[in-house]
């Protein structure tokens, strides 16, 4: 079973601050990480490989330092990494196109796994868009996968319904956070990952047309001001103070 995992390297939004002068989010100096659900994606790929054998390739469209996060994916269990540095201008479209072209270049694949959504942009767009570009079937929002030799069955959380979908290969799957518990690689695995290859492919070598379709014209930070009054005394006093405050604020009636 040849599996491709698309994993995004994101800034950790929980560390983000808003610049009070410009009202823009401050993106510099924030630590980066593999987008949470993409770790579930790689974990699921490893489980499939453990059962059926094969090879796992992880692809990231990212910045040069995304290599560090790709190493984490290799330590978890991916066999090879591919880093495609972001071109000067990019949007959802260019990222999906680059991933689709890289997948075509890899050529041998049965399952492509993406996260249901990335933690920074949270659009859930890239996975199904790749499926559309490659014209292959898609199993989205999978919280359980059953992989057999010639077919895959996914149980999917579609909100109002739980839908079970079956497909032959190749197929694109997007997974939810609930599908598994991503492993933490051991020290041995971290050291072993150093010998696994990370290829770097240029956007220009994959795409002729690198024109974006969407431009971000502005970004505005949203800050949240709260009173932050914390009662730490004995519970009875805390409860009394809280009820008094809520009553004064007029939110009880």
């Amino acid at each position: 079973m040849n599996i491709i995992v698309c994993a995004k390297d994101v800034v950790d939004a929980s560390e983000m601050k808003i610049d009070s002068n410009t009202n823009k989010p401050i993106l510099e100096g924030i630590s980066k990480k593999i987008s949470d659900i993409d770790k579930n994606a790689i974990e699921e790929a490893i489980k499939i490989k453990e059962k059926h054998g094969g090879k796992i390739t992880a692809i990231t469209v990212g910045t040069p330092d995304s290599k560090e996060r790709i190493k984490e994916l290799l330590a978890m269990g991916a066999d090879e990494g591919v880093l495609i540095p972001y071109p000067e201008k990019y949007d959802y479209h260019i990222v999906s196109k680059l991933l689709a072209e890289a997948i075509k270049k890899i050529n041998e694949y049965d399952i492509i796994i993406c996260g249901e959504a990335s933690t920074d942009f949270f659009s859930g767009q890239i996975g199904p868009k790749i499926a559309g570009l490659l014209n292959i079937s898609q199993i989205t929002y999978a919280f359980n996968l059953n992989v057999e030799k010639d077919k895959i069955i996914g149980e999917r959380n579609m909100g109002e319904n739980s839908v079970t979908t079956e497909s032959s290969y190749p197929v694109l799957v997007t997974v939810t956070k609930e599908i598994n518990e991503p492993r933490l690689p051991s020290l041995m695995e971290i050291l072993g990952a150093a010998n696994k290859p990370i290829h770097e492919w240029n956007a220009d070598s994959l795409l002729n047309d690198t024109n974006t379709k969407i431009e971000t014209i502005d970004i505005k930070g949203i800050s949240m001001e709260r009173k932050n009054i914390v009662f730490k005394d004995n519970i009875d006093d805390s409860v009394t103070k809280l009820v008094d405050s809520l009553s004064k604020d007029g939110v009880l009636g």
């Binding site: 800034v11 989010p25 920074d120 024109n211 969407i214 970004i219």
Partner: peptide
Amino acid sequence: VYSGNAISIEQFNS
């Protein structure tokens, strides 16, 4: 975007 920390304003050029 960014888990509720910001709003991005995006424009189609095609």
